Amino acid sequence: MKVHLIADSAADLPRSFFEANDIGFIPLRVSLDDKEYEDAVTIQANEVLEAMKNGKAPKTSQASPQTIKNTFLQFAETGEPALYVAFSSGLSGTYQTAVMMANEVKEEYPDFDLRIIDSKCASLGYGLAVRYAQELCVDGNTIQEIETSVKDFCAHLEHIFTVDDLTYLARGGRISKASAFVGGLLNIKPLLHMEDGKLIPLEKIRGKKKLLKRIIEVMAERGDNWSGQTVGISYADNEDTALEMKQLIEDAFHPKEIIMHTIGSAVGSHSGPGTLAIFFSSKS
């Protein structure tokens, strides 16, 4: 039986990927200039980043409960199972709302087999999990097999990233304001990672060259099976740096594939222009 896949806009994958693979799409919300938009639907990342460079402070909120419910209902009506791989619950309330909406839908469709996974991933790391889930769906696996495999994939996914200005993360409550102040001094670049779906500072490095070199070192310490995996790179208004990082990764590890994509407006509203993030599978 076919298993349908659902994901949200925080995966930072192009809309064309969702459309080509018939994946249900749930947009998070972005507020800018007292107007509310749907991420990747009525506002795009470049618009948000440009506004931030001009001093604006966009805010984000979880996906609309009704949008989530309507998406679930769409697949419930097919009589086939569905799997929603959700943005990290440590960064958004979308997962919790989805669980509530799933319960409502199941009251109307009690036989609907809907599974929801808290990916504990973000941006293109989350996107890699969605891509992996899609491959499993196409290969004809059962929903139980897909759910188990995707949870394991997410548990071994590393997120290593840096930002130009920690003020944006502090403004959104993602890190402390004290950390933001220190990080803004003397060209110190923060290196962060994810632990249990939350952003955790790793270390501080002075200068871009040392930063990129340190990212490669961290990848070497944590990564494994490079020839068999896809590495993700997401970036915000700094494609040149992302391309430089891509070349360093290719030279050091020769992975099966490297995919790149801009950070979406929901994630970008918190990380800001100059964000660079690398995603890869860790050692088992």
Rank of each mutant, 00 (worst) to 15 (best):
D139L: 09
N141V: 13
N141D: 14
T142K: 13
T142V: 14
I143Y: 12
Q144W: 02
I146S: 10
I146G: 10
I146F: 10
E147D: 14
T148E: 13
T148H: 08
K151A: 04
D152G: 00
F153S: 06
C154I: 04
C154W: 02
A155D: 13
H156V: 09
L157N: 09
E158T: 12
E158L: 08
E158A: 10
H159L: 00
H159Q: 05
I160G: 06
F161Y: 09
T162V: 11
T162P: 00
T162A: 09
V163M: 01
V163H: 00
D164C: 01
D164K: 11
D164T: 07
D165M: 02
D165R: 02
L166H: 08
L166F: 10
T167W: 07
Y168H: 15
A170W: 00
R171Y: 07
R171L: 11
R174M: 05
I175W: 00
I175V: 03
K177S: 14
A178K: 12
A178I: 15
A178H: 08
S179H: 08
A180Y: 02
A180T: 03
F181C: 12
V182T: 10
V182A: 09
G184H: 04
G184C: 01
N187W: 07
N187E: 11
N187S: 13
I188H: 12
I188K: 09
K189L: 02
P190M: 07
L191F: 12
L191K: 11
L191I: 15
L192E: 07
L192M: 13
L192F: 01
H193A: 02
H193N: 13
H193C: 09
M194N: 06
D196S: 10
G197V: 05
G197H: 00
K198N: 05
K198A: 08
L199C: 11
L199M: 15
P201W: 01
P201I: 06
P201C: 05
L202W: 15
L202S: 14
L202M: 14
K204G: 15
K204I: 04
I205A: 10
I205C: 11
R206N: 08
R206V: 04
R206T: 02
G207Q: 08
G207I: 05
G207P: 04
G207C: 04
G207E: 12
K208T: 11
K210H: 11
K210N: 13
L211H: 05
L211E: 01
L211N: 09
L211G: 02
L211M: 12
L211S: 00
L212W: 01
K213L: 15
K213S: 15
K213P: 11
K213D: 15
I215R: 04
I215Y: 12
I216Q: 06
I216S: 02
E217I: 10
E217Y: 13
V218W: 01
V218D: 04
V218E: 14
V218S: 08
V218F: 06
V218T: 08
R222I: 11
R222A: 12
R222H: 14
G223H: 07
G223A: 08
D224L: 06
D224N: 12
W226K: 11
W226T: 06
W226H: 04
S227F: 06
G228Y: 01
G228E: 13
G228Q: 15
Q229F: 04
Q229P: 03
T230I: 13
G232I: 05
I233W: 08
S234G: 08
S234Q: 06
Y235S: 10
E239L: 14
E239V: 14
E239A: 10
D240C: 09
T241A: 12
T241W: 07
A242L: 00
